[in-house]
Nucleic acid binder design. Structure first.
Lengths: 340, 340
DNA sequence: TTGAAAGCGCTAACAG
DNA sequence: CTGTTAGCGCTTTCAA
């Protein structure tokens, strides 16, 4: 016997065993078209007796639907992704879709390479995380009307793709107001994300707006690129301390940067928040376990994943979908100087 | 024009434009069989002019290979998964495989349901995380010789599937020795993982062995099920404190449980490690950022993912693969009572 | 309520 | 070096 034969039941085997045509088997499998209750039973029996599993490839080829959602990410490094994946996976499974995950490397996918990686023929639609795909490819998806939803990224000009974003600016603004009015900080530093990261840009605008609204000058030397990375951010803050830069507080563009800032201060023997206060953005799981616990802005990451997937599925099924802007919420813990 | 036509180039279109047969196109696509350099060039031009993307389904159907690895997980909740996914994804991509991810829910997949979810026909092989699939299905995979690698789980009796595991027992044993001999703790509690979790069982054996080796009685009231969950563990430790249970130290079965224990002690106003010491297992990212930083056992999670994927790929390609037992390493930080 | 048959787009012999 | 052709296993008309 061939080594694999045991597992190779096909729809024909089922049909033969149930003494019906393959069309009928297909009907009971997909619940499409009428089948007598008696026949249905025979087919079901045959299926389970043979351990029959429909081959996804054959089905996809014949029906032109893959029932698969693609998820494109730059990397799977940060703490940010578990909730995001959970949201996406949950929504996908709920709607009967599989989830195909690809990482593209930090620089995103170069145009052209994308095709082979996860071309538009191999999933029913794509969930694209910030920075994974260049504008040229986004443009193309838009033109050929391939279902796509952008995660934490707005579409480039003229490309009207649906997207899911956080209310970054208002969240950042609110947090800054807190630092300025409640705690009286004036020399507040900002740790940027990677170049081109839209979340970071909006958060920075909230940062600048708040300063200006209170007549505080925006000082370029207080703004640096932490890349949303623990280590990069630690190094920057360490350098600041080394230089003796005067700072009341650090607004880290995301919680990973905040962790880096924590590290730097701890290693330098500085107290948080007495010497320098730190606040972040995102509210990842770890935030509440730092000490002092991190004051930050809660971003509904799992919701973003879930809603992104839902929008994509609706786009696949109905042909169109809107965008969503998800509210953020300031979470006061101890690292800003508040007693909690 | 049909709304999708732009993207629907097939191998025939390419062949026509390049004035060759589809067989030739297939040859240059897959680098199988000889093609003149001139012809190759014409085909490549046609491909890029048409934005041609081979349809994975057609290819899979014809070749009986999907170039896809399936990953089965109970859930995507914990901090444990980012490094695991990173390892898997990296190895998969490196070898040219796609990654299909499925979560099964906390209880794993019920027999029978698995088939539809990710049947053996729809991936080239499966990476199965502890607790995702019942023994009956594992048995079946083994019988039909479907490529499978077990992650952090040993195969059931008589089912010789390859697996990747941590040296749990010796790691736990070493950590316990440290608590007992260096710090002199004798009343050490243990927080178990979910029922049937093999990592937990081995760690518990290390715990018991160490106690016995030092003539310390294993007390059932000092062992409870924290389920490897923050909240469950917090509740248990809170209850212990409430009851006034005397404890020198808590050995949390994994870092998530350790975090829960931290929470409970902090909320109860107890000092770590002065009142009660805490140690964990895994060394997730957050461990070093707790305060005091968590003493734990480093488990090479990313390696486990990478190696698991590599074993699976080798099994797909060569028909067999061995198992791996990955070394663990004690990481002393502050939460055990050491000054670091 | 059921069956026959025509593809879906590709790979892989087999011929030339 | 290149072309022809027979499927891969399924869905989906169209008839019966």
């Amino acid at each position: 016997m061939a080594s694999r034969s045991v597992s190779r039941a096909t729809i024909e085997d089922v049909a033969a065993l149930a003494k019906v045509s393959i069309a009928t088997v297909s009907r009971v499998l997909n619940n499409t078209g009428p089948v007598s209750i008696d026949t249905t039973q025979r087919v079901m029996d045959a299926i389970s007796r043979l351990n029959y599993v429909p081959r996804a490839a054959a089905r996809a080829l014949a029906s032109n639907r893959t029932e698969t959602l693609g998820l494109l990410l730059p990397a799977l490094g940060s703490e940010f992704f578990p909730p995001l994946l959970r949201g996406v996976e949950h929504a996908a499974r709920h709607a009967g879709f599989d989830l195909l995950i690809h990482t593209t490397g930090a620089r995103g996918i170069q145009h052209g390479k994308l095709r082979r990686a996860m071309g538009e023929q191999n999933t029913d639609g794509l969930l694209i995380f910030t920075g994974s795909v260049d504008d040229q490819d986004l443009h193309r998806f838009y033109e050929i009307r391939f279902p796509v939803v952008l995660l934490l990224q707005s579409p480039p000009l003229g490309v009207d793709l649906p997207s899911v974003n956080f209310e970054n600016k208002s969240g950042a603004r609110q947090l800054m107001e807190h630092l300025i009015t409640v705690h009286g900080y004036r020399r507040i530093a900002f740790l940027r994300g990677p170049a081109g990261n839209q979340d970071s840009e909006w958060r920075e605008r909230g940062y600048c707006d708040a300063l200006e609204a209170h007549g505080i000058e925006v000082r370029p030397e207080l703004i640096a690129v932490g890349n949303f990375e623990v280590e990069d951010s630690r190094a920057i803050v360490a350098a600041w301390i080394e230089q003796g830069l005067e700072i009341d507080a650090i607004f880290a563009g995301d919680d990973d940067s905040a962790i880096g800032a924590f590290r730097a201060l701890q290693l330098a023997g500085k107290r948080i928040p007495e010497d320098i206060a730190i606040v972040g953005f995102d509210d990842v799981q770890i935030a509440r376990y730092l000490s002092p616990p991190l004051t930050t802005v809660h971003a509904p990451i799992e919701d973003a994943g879930r809603i992104g997937a839902e929008l994509l599925i609706s786009q696949i099924q109905t042909g169109h979908a809107g965008s969503e802007l998800l509210p953020t919420e300031m979470i006061i813990r101890g690292s800003c100087g508040c007693q909690v």
